[in-house]
Design a protein around this nucleic acid. Sequence first.
DNA 1: GTCTATAACTGGATAGAC
DNA 2: GTCTATCCAGTTATAGAC
Lengths: 200, 200
Amino acid sequence: MTSNESGRRRRGPYAKSAARREQIAQAALQVFGARGYRGGTVQDVADAAGMSQTSVLHHYPNKQELLIAALKRRDAVTDGTPGTGERFAQSIVEQAQFNEGAAELIELYAALCGESTTSDHPARSYFEARFERLRGEYGAEFEFMKSIGRLRPGVDPHVAGASLLALWDGIQVQWLLSPDDVDMAGTLKAYLDLVILPES
Amino acid sequence: MTSNESGRRRRGPYAKSAARREQIAQAALQVFGARGYRGGTVQDVADAAGMSQTSVLHHYPNKQELLIAALKRRDAVTDGTPGTGERFAQSIVEQAQFNEGAAELIELYAALCGESTTSDHPARSYFEARFERLRGEYGAEFEFMKSIGRLRPGVDPHVAGASLLALWDGIQVQWLLSPDDVDMAGTLKAYLDLVILPES
DNA sequence: GTCTATAACTGGATAGAC
DNA sequence: GTCTATCCAGTTATAGAC
Protein backbone atom coordinates (compact mmCIF):
# COMPACT_ATOMS: atom_id res chain seq x y z
CA MET A 1 0.00 0.00 0.00
CA THR A 2 1.03 3.54 -0.55
CA SER A 3 -0.75 4.78 2.55
CA ASN A 4 1.46 6.25 5.24
CA GLU A 5 1.11 6.09 8.97
CA SER A 6 -1.52 8.80 9.07
CA GLY A 7 -3.81 6.53 7.14
CA ARG A 8 -4.22 9.09 4.42
CA ARG A 9 -2.57 8.72 1.07
CA ARG A 10 -1.04 11.97 -0.12
CA ARG A 11 -1.82 12.05 -3.75
CA GLY A 12 -3.50 14.27 -6.21
CA PRO A 13 -2.35 17.44 -7.89
CA TYR A 14 0.87 18.00 -5.99
CA ALA A 15 3.10 17.75 -9.03
CA LYS A 16 0.95 20.20 -10.88
CA SER A 17 0.91 22.48 -7.88
CA ALA A 18 4.69 22.55 -7.69
CA ALA A 19 4.90 23.40 -11.37
CA ARG A 20 2.35 26.14 -10.82
CA ARG A 21 4.43 27.64 -8.06
CA GLU A 22 7.48 27.62 -10.30
CA GLN A 23 5.51 29.36 -12.99
CA ILE A 24 4.34 32.02 -10.56
CA ALA A 25 7.82 32.57 -9.13
CA GLN A 26 9.17 33.13 -12.64
CA ALA A 27 6.40 35.62 -13.36
CA ALA A 28 7.08 37.43 -10.08
CA LEU A 29 10.74 37.69 -11.02
CA GLN A 30 9.85 39.33 -14.32
CA VAL A 31 7.28 41.71 -12.90
CA PHE A 32 9.25 42.90 -9.86
CA GLY A 33 12.33 43.23 -12.06
CA ALA A 34 10.54 45.43 -14.55
CA ARG A 35 8.48 47.53 -12.16
CA GLY A 36 10.00 47.10 -8.72
CA TYR A 37 8.23 45.67 -5.69
CA ARG A 38 6.00 48.63 -4.97
CA GLY A 39 5.48 49.34 -8.65
CA GLY A 40 4.48 45.80 -9.55
CA THR A 41 1.09 44.42 -8.57
CA VAL A 42 -0.14 40.95 -7.79
CA GLN A 43 -2.40 41.35 -10.80
CA ASP A 44 0.66 41.97 -12.96
CA VAL A 45 2.19 38.75 -11.70
CA ALA A 46 -1.04 36.91 -12.39
CA ASP A 47 -1.18 38.29 -15.92
CA ALA A 48 2.43 37.29 -16.57
CA ALA A 49 1.72 33.80 -15.26
CA GLY A 50 -1.46 33.52 -17.28
CA MET A 51 -3.88 33.03 -14.43
CA SER A 52 -6.14 34.99 -12.12
CA GLN A 53 -4.98 37.09 -9.22
CA THR A 54 -6.74 34.85 -6.73
CA SER A 55 -4.98 31.78 -8.06
CA VAL A 56 -1.66 33.46 -7.43
CA LEU A 57 -2.67 34.29 -3.87
CA HIS A 58 -3.84 30.73 -3.40
CA HIS A 59 -0.29 29.46 -3.97
CA TYR A 60 1.44 32.30 -2.15
CA PRO A 61 -0.37 33.83 0.81
CA ASN A 62 0.61 37.44 0.09
CA LYS A 63 2.70 39.78 -1.99
CA GLN A 64 5.76 39.57 0.24
CA GLU A 65 5.97 35.83 -0.26
CA LEU A 66 5.93 36.45 -3.98
CA LEU A 67 8.93 38.69 -3.61
CA ILE A 68 10.81 36.12 -1.56
CA ALA A 69 10.05 33.48 -4.17
CA ALA A 70 11.43 35.75 -6.89
CA LEU A 71 14.63 36.44 -4.94
CA LYS A 72 15.16 32.75 -4.21
CA ARG A 73 14.73 31.97 -7.85
CA ARG A 74 17.32 34.58 -8.76
CA ASP A 75 19.77 33.18 -6.24
CA ALA A 76 19.35 29.69 -7.61
CA VAL A 77 20.23 30.81 -11.13
CA THR A 78 22.83 33.45 -10.45
CA ASP A 79 24.91 32.90 -7.37
CA GLY A 80 27.50 30.29 -8.14
CA THR A 81 30.36 30.19 -5.66
CA PRO A 82 33.38 31.71 -7.38
CA GLY A 83 36.52 29.65 -7.58
CA THR A 84 39.49 30.39 -5.38
CA GLY A 85 43.05 31.41 -6.13
CA GLU A 86 43.77 31.17 -9.83
CA ARG A 87 40.14 30.78 -10.72
CA PHE A 88 38.66 33.63 -8.68
CA ALA A 89 39.02 36.43 -11.19
CA GLN A 90 37.99 34.13 -13.99
CA SER A 91 34.84 33.05 -12.16
CA ILE A 92 33.80 36.65 -11.50
CA VAL A 93 34.19 37.66 -15.11
CA GLU A 94 32.39 34.55 -16.35
CA GLN A 95 29.54 35.26 -13.98
CA ALA A 96 29.30 38.82 -15.29
CA GLN A 97 29.27 37.58 -18.87
CA PHE A 98 26.52 35.13 -18.05
CA ASN A 99 24.52 37.92 -16.42
CA GLU A 100 24.66 40.04 -19.56
CA GLY A 101 22.54 37.38 -21.21
CA ALA A 102 20.08 37.27 -18.32
CA ALA A 103 18.90 40.86 -18.13
CA GLU A 104 15.79 39.88 -16.19
CA LEU A 105 17.88 38.78 -13.26
CA ILE A 106 19.92 41.97 -13.24
CA GLU A 107 16.82 44.08 -13.45
CA LEU A 108 15.31 42.38 -10.44
CA TYR A 109 18.52 42.80 -8.51
CA ALA A 110 19.12 46.46 -9.34
CA ALA A 111 15.54 47.58 -8.91
CA LEU A 112 15.10 45.86 -5.55
CA CYS A 113 18.53 46.70 -4.21
CA GLY A 114 17.88 50.43 -4.54
CA GLU A 115 14.31 50.14 -3.37
CA SER A 116 15.36 48.15 -0.33
CA THR A 117 17.34 51.04 1.13
CA THR A 118 14.02 52.67 2.00
CA SER A 119 12.37 52.08 5.33
CA ASP A 120 10.25 49.02 5.95
CA HIS A 121 11.10 47.33 2.71
CA PRO A 122 10.58 43.56 2.75
CA ALA A 123 13.85 42.92 0.89
CA ARG A 124 16.03 45.08 3.11
CA SER A 125 17.30 42.31 5.37
CA TYR A 126 17.96 40.15 2.34
CA PHE A 127 20.35 42.73 0.90
CA GLU A 128 21.95 43.54 4.22
CA ALA A 129 22.77 39.88 4.74
CA ARG A 130 23.89 39.42 1.16
CA PHE A 131 26.31 42.33 1.27
CA GLU A 132 27.79 41.30 4.55
CA ARG A 133 28.31 37.75 3.33
CA LEU A 134 29.87 38.72 0.03
CA ARG A 135 32.14 41.32 1.59
CA GLY A 136 33.40 38.55 3.83
CA GLU A 137 33.88 36.06 1.00
CA TYR A 138 35.62 38.46 -1.34
CA GLY A 139 37.72 39.91 1.47
CA ALA A 140 38.88 36.45 2.50
CA GLU A 141 39.79 35.60 -1.06
CA PHE A 142 41.87 38.76 -1.48
CA GLU A 143 43.51 38.03 1.84
CA PHE A 144 44.51 34.64 0.57
CA MET A 145 45.96 36.23 -2.54
CA LYS A 146 47.92 38.62 -0.42
CA SER A 147 49.33 35.70 1.53
CA ILE A 148 50.72 34.16 -1.65
CA GLY A 149 52.03 37.47 -2.91
CA ARG A 150 49.54 37.90 -5.71
CA LEU A 151 47.86 41.06 -4.38
CA ARG A 152 49.28 44.39 -5.49
CA PRO A 153 51.30 45.91 -2.65
CA GLY A 154 49.42 48.56 -0.74
CA VAL A 155 45.99 47.10 -1.47
CA ASP A 156 43.86 46.30 1.58
CA PRO A 157 42.14 42.95 0.98
CA HIS A 158 38.89 43.92 2.65
CA VAL A 159 38.66 47.29 0.97
CA ALA A 160 39.21 45.46 -2.32
CA GLY A 161 36.42 43.04 -1.43
CA ALA A 162 33.91 45.79 -0.74
CA SER A 163 35.12 47.64 -3.83
CA LEU A 164 34.62 44.68 -6.13
CA LEU A 165 31.09 44.26 -4.83
CA ALA A 166 30.32 47.97 -5.15
CA LEU A 167 31.81 48.16 -8.61
CA TRP A 168 29.77 45.20 -9.74
CA ASP A 169 26.49 46.58 -8.45
CA GLY A 170 27.20 50.06 -9.75
CA ILE A 171 28.18 48.98 -13.23
CA GLN A 172 25.05 46.84 -13.47
CA VAL A 173 22.88 49.89 -12.95
CA GLN A 174 24.79 51.83 -15.60
CA TRP A 175 24.48 48.89 -17.95
CA LEU A 176 20.72 48.69 -17.42
CA LEU A 177 20.28 52.35 -18.29
CA SER A 178 22.73 52.40 -21.23
CA PRO A 179 23.56 48.87 -22.32
CA ASP A 180 25.43 50.05 -25.41
CA ASP A 181 27.81 52.34 -23.57
CA VAL A 182 28.87 50.01 -20.78
CA ASP A 183 30.86 46.77 -20.75
CA MET A 184 30.14 45.03 -17.48
CA ALA A 185 32.51 42.10 -17.75
CA GLY A 186 35.26 44.28 -19.17
CA THR A 187 35.00 46.79 -16.34
CA LEU A 188 35.20 44.09 -13.70
CA LYS A 189 38.12 42.43 -15.44
CA ALA A 190 39.96 45.76 -15.59
CA TYR A 191 39.62 46.16 -11.83
CA LEU A 192 40.73 42.62 -11.10
CA ASP A 193 43.73 43.00 -13.40
CA LEU A 194 44.62 46.13 -11.50
CA VAL A 195 44.46 44.52 -8.09
CA ILE A 196 45.67 41.00 -8.74
CA LEU A 197 49.24 40.57 -9.89
CA PRO A 198 49.97 38.24 -12.79
CA GLU A 199 51.59 34.92 -11.98
CA SER A 200 55.28 35.53 -11.60
CA MET B 1 -1.46 104.70 -9.40
CA THR B 2 0.81 101.73 -9.14
CA SER B 3 -1.03 99.81 -11.80
CA ASN B 4 1.05 98.70 -14.75
CA GLU B 5 -0.06 98.24 -18.33
CA SER B 6 -2.05 95.17 -17.50
CA GLY B 7 -3.97 97.21 -15.00
CA ARG B 8 -2.87 94.91 -12.17
CA ARG B 9 0.05 95.43 -9.87
CA ARG B 10 2.02 92.26 -9.29
CA ARG B 11 2.58 92.30 -5.60
CA GLY B 12 1.67 90.30 -2.62
CA PRO B 13 2.87 87.01 -1.25
CA TYR B 14 5.45 86.13 -3.85
CA ALA B 15 8.32 86.04 -1.43
CA LYS B 16 6.34 83.89 0.92
CA SER B 17 5.36 81.65 -1.94
CA ALA B 18 8.98 81.06 -2.95
CA ALA B 19 9.84 80.15 0.63
CA ARG B 20 6.90 77.80 0.69
CA ARG B 21 8.14 76.05 -2.43
CA GLU B 22 11.57 75.64 -0.89
CA GLN B 23 10.02 74.17 2.19
CA ILE B 24 8.02 71.70 0.13
CA ALA B 25 11.01 70.72 -2.00
CA GLN B 26 12.99 69.95 1.15
CA ALA B 27 10.13 67.84 2.50
CA ALA B 28 9.87 65.98 -0.82
CA LEU B 29 13.59 65.24 -0.68
CA GLN B 30 13.23 63.71 2.76
CA VAL B 31 10.13 61.69 1.97
CA PHE B 32 11.24 60.28 -1.38
CA GLY B 33 14.65 59.56 0.08
CA ALA B 34 13.20 57.58 2.95
CA ARG B 35 10.42 55.78 1.11
CA GLY B 36 11.19 56.03 -2.61
CA TYR B 37 9.02 57.70 -5.20
CA ARG B 38 6.32 55.07 -5.37
CA GLY B 39 6.52 54.39 -1.67
CA GLY B 40 6.16 58.02 -0.63
CA THR B 41 2.83 59.83 -0.90
CA VAL B 42 1.92 63.43 -1.45
CA GLN B 43 0.33 63.31 1.97
CA ASP B 44 3.67 62.26 3.45
CA VAL B 45 5.30 65.29 1.83
CA ALA B 46 2.56 67.53 3.17
CA ASP B 47 3.00 66.16 6.67
CA ALA B 48 6.76 66.66 6.52
CA ALA B 49 6.25 70.23 5.31
CA GLY B 50 3.64 70.90 7.97
CA MET B 51 0.75 71.74 5.69
CA SER B 52 -2.17 70.10 3.97
CA GLN B 53 -1.96 67.90 0.92
CA THR B 54 -3.89 70.39 -1.19
CA SER B 55 -1.50 73.16 -0.31
CA VAL B 56 1.37 71.08 -1.61
CA LEU B 57 -0.48 70.42 -4.86
CA HIS B 58 -1.25 74.10 -5.14
CA HIS B 59 2.47 74.89 -5.38
CA TYR B 60 3.39 71.87 -7.48
CA PRO B 61 0.81 70.62 -9.97
CA ASN B 62 1.43 66.91 -9.40
CA LYS B 63 3.58 64.29 -7.76
CA GLN B 64 6.11 64.12 -10.58
CA GLU B 65 6.92 67.80 -10.22
CA LEU B 66 7.59 67.17 -6.57
CA LEU B 67 10.13 64.55 -7.51
CA ILE B 68 11.85 66.88 -9.95
CA ALA B 69 11.99 69.59 -7.30
CA ALA B 70 13.61 67.14 -4.90
CA LEU B 71 16.23 66.07 -7.46
CA LYS B 72 17.06 69.66 -8.34
CA ARG B 73 17.50 70.46 -4.71
CA ARG B 74 19.86 67.54 -4.30
CA ASP B 75 21.90 68.64 -7.30
CA ALA B 76 22.21 72.15 -5.94
CA VAL B 77 23.64 70.90 -2.65
CA THR B 78 25.71 67.96 -3.80
CA ASP B 79 27.15 68.26 -7.25
CA GLY B 80 30.15 70.50 -7.08
CA THR B 81 32.38 70.31 -10.15
CA PRO B 82 35.49 68.43 -9.14
CA GLY B 83 38.82 70.09 -9.66
CA THR B 84 41.14 68.99 -12.41
CA GLY B 85 44.63 67.55 -12.45
CA GLU B 86 46.14 67.61 -8.97
CA ARG B 87 42.88 68.46 -7.34
CA PHE B 88 40.65 65.88 -8.99
CA ALA B 89 41.19 63.00 -6.58
CA GLN B 90 41.09 65.36 -3.64
CA SER B 91 37.76 66.85 -4.76
CA ILE B 92 36.18 63.41 -5.14
CA VAL B 93 37.21 62.33 -1.68
CA GLU B 94 36.11 65.61 -0.12
CA GLN B 95 32.75 65.30 -1.81
CA ALA B 96 32.36 61.78 -0.45
CA GLN B 97 33.25 62.97 3.03
CA PHE B 98 30.71 65.75 2.80
CA ASN B 99 28.08 63.25 1.68
CA GLU B 100 28.63 61.10 4.74
CA GLY B 101 27.25 63.99 6.75
CA ALA B 102 24.26 64.43 4.46
CA ALA B 103 22.64 61.03 4.58
CA GLU B 104 19.33 62.40 3.33
CA LEU B 105 20.86 63.27 0.00
CA ILE B 106 22.44 59.85 -0.41
CA GLU B 107 19.22 58.14 0.52
CA LEU B 108 17.32 60.03 -2.14
CA TYR B 109 19.96 59.25 -4.70
CA ALA B 110 20.26 55.54 -3.96
CA ALA B 111 16.56 54.88 -3.61
CA LEU B 112 15.62 56.67 -6.81
CA CYS B 113 18.54 55.43 -8.84
CA GLY B 114 17.53 51.80 -8.34
CA GLU B 115 13.86 52.55 -8.73
CA SER B 116 14.49 54.44 -11.96
CA THR B 117 15.76 51.35 -13.75
CA THR B 118 12.16 50.16 -13.88
CA SER B 119 9.96 50.98 -16.82
CA ASP B 120 8.17 54.30 -17.05
CA HIS B 121 9.84 55.82 -14.05
CA PRO B 122 9.77 59.63 -14.00
CA ALA B 123 13.41 59.84 -12.89
CA ARG B 124 14.79 57.47 -15.50
CA SER B 125 15.88 60.10 -18.00
CA TYR B 126 17.44 62.11 -15.20
CA PHE B 127 19.73 59.23 -14.27
CA GLU B 128 20.49 58.28 -17.86
CA ALA B 129 21.62 61.82 -18.57
CA ARG B 130 23.53 62.08 -15.34
CA PHE B 131 25.49 58.88 -15.91
CA GLU B 132 26.35 59.79 -19.46
CA ARG B 133 27.55 63.23 -18.43
CA LEU B 134 29.65 62.02 -15.52
CA ARG B 135 31.20 59.18 -17.50
CA GLY B 136 32.28 61.81 -20.00
CA GLU B 137 33.64 64.16 -17.37
CA TYR B 138 35.53 61.54 -15.42
CA GLY B 139 36.78 59.88 -18.61
CA ALA B 140 38.12 63.18 -19.91
CA GLU B 141 39.87 63.86 -16.64
CA PHE B 142 41.58 60.45 -16.62
CA GLU B 143 42.54 61.03 -20.24
CA PHE B 144 44.21 64.25 -19.25
CA MET B 145 46.08 62.45 -16.51
CA LYS B 146 47.22 59.86 -18.97
CA SER B 147 48.53 62.62 -21.22
CA ILE B 148 50.75 63.94 -18.45
CA GLY B 149 51.88 60.47 -17.45
CA ARG B 150 50.01 60.30 -14.18
CA LEU B 151 47.71 57.40 -15.07
CA ARG B 152 48.91 53.92 -14.25
CA PRO B 153 50.09 52.19 -17.42
CA GLY B 154 47.51 49.81 -18.88
CA VAL B 155 44.53 51.66 -17.42
CA ASP B 156 41.91 52.77 -19.95
CA PRO B 157 40.78 56.29 -19.02
CA HIS B 158 37.15 55.77 -19.94
CA VAL B 159 36.88 52.42 -18.20
CA ALA B 160 38.34 54.13 -15.15
CA GLY B 161 35.76 56.90 -15.45
CA ALA B 162 32.83 54.49 -15.54
CA SER B 163 34.44 52.45 -12.76
CA LEU B 164 34.82 55.43 -10.45
CA LEU B 165 31.18 56.30 -10.97
CA ALA B 166 30.04 52.71 -10.44
CA LEU B 167 32.21 52.28 -7.37
CA TRP B 168 30.84 55.46 -5.86
CA ASP B 169 27.21 54.52 -6.40
CA GLY B 170 27.74 50.95 -5.24
CA ILE B 171 29.57 51.86 -2.07
CA GLN B 172 26.87 54.38 -1.19
CA VAL B 173 24.27 51.62 -1.18
CA GLN B 174 26.45 49.43 1.02
CA TRP B 175 27.01 52.36 3.35
CA LEU B 176 23.27 53.03 3.63
CA LEU B 177 22.58 49.44 4.62
CA SER B 178 25.58 49.04 6.96
CA PRO B 179 27.06 52.44 7.80
CA ASP B 180 29.38 51.00 10.44
CA ASP B 181 31.02 48.45 8.16
CA VAL B 182 31.74 50.67 5.17
CA ASP B 183 34.07 53.62 4.66
CA MET B 184 32.87 55.49 1.59
CA ALA B 185 35.59 58.08 1.31
CA GLY B 186 38.30 55.57 2.12
CA THR B 187 37.12 53.14 -0.53
CA LEU B 188 37.08 55.84 -3.19
CA LYS B 189 40.50 57.09 -2.15
CA ALA B 190 41.89 53.56 -2.36
CA TYR B 191 40.70 53.25 -5.95
CA LEU B 192 42.07 56.64 -6.95
CA ASP B 193 45.42 55.85 -5.34
CA LEU B 194 45.48 52.67 -7.35
CA VAL B 195 44.79 54.33 -10.67
CA ILE B 196 46.55 57.68 -10.34
CA LEU B 197 50.33 57.62 -9.98
CA PRO B 198 51.94 59.82 -7.35
CA GLU B 199 53.73 62.93 -8.54
CA SER B 200 57.15 61.86 -9.73
C1' DG C 1 -3.31 80.68 -0.48
C1' DT C 2 -5.07 77.46 2.45
C1' DC C 3 -8.31 74.59 3.99
C1' DT C 4 -12.31 70.62 4.19
C1' DA C 5 -14.60 67.45 1.57
C1' DT C 6 -14.84 64.32 -1.80
C1' DA C 7 -14.48 62.39 -6.47
C1' DA C 8 -12.29 58.85 -9.21
C1' DC C 9 -9.48 55.25 -9.15
C1' DT C 10 -6.32 51.35 -7.86
C1' DG C 11 -4.37 48.06 -4.74
C1' DG C 12 -4.25 43.82 -1.73
C1' DA C 13 -6.90 40.51 0.15
C1' DT C 14 -11.28 37.45 1.10
C1' DA C 15 -15.79 34.63 0.41
C1' DG C 16 -17.97 31.31 -1.80
C1' DA C 17 -19.60 28.92 -6.11
C1' DC C 18 -18.04 25.40 -9.12
C1' DG D 1 -7.53 24.54 -7.51
C1' DT D 2 -9.52 28.05 -9.99
C1' DC D 3 -12.65 31.35 -10.86
C1' DT D 4 -16.23 35.67 -10.31
C1' DA D 5 -17.61 39.01 -7.35
C1' DT D 6 -16.72 41.97 -3.75
C1' DC D 7 -14.73 44.45 0.24
C1' DC D 8 -12.09 47.93 2.14
C1' DA D 9 -8.11 50.81 2.60
C1' DG D 10 -5.26 54.07 0.56
C1' DT D 11 -3.86 57.36 -3.36
C1' DT D 12 -3.86 61.26 -6.58
C1' DA D 13 -6.26 64.98 -7.87
C1' DT D 14 -10.18 68.44 -8.03
C1' DA D 15 -14.09 71.59 -6.35
C1' DG D 16 -15.44 75.13 -3.70
C1' DA D 17 -15.78 77.67 0.84
C1' DC D 18 -13.25 81.09 3.46
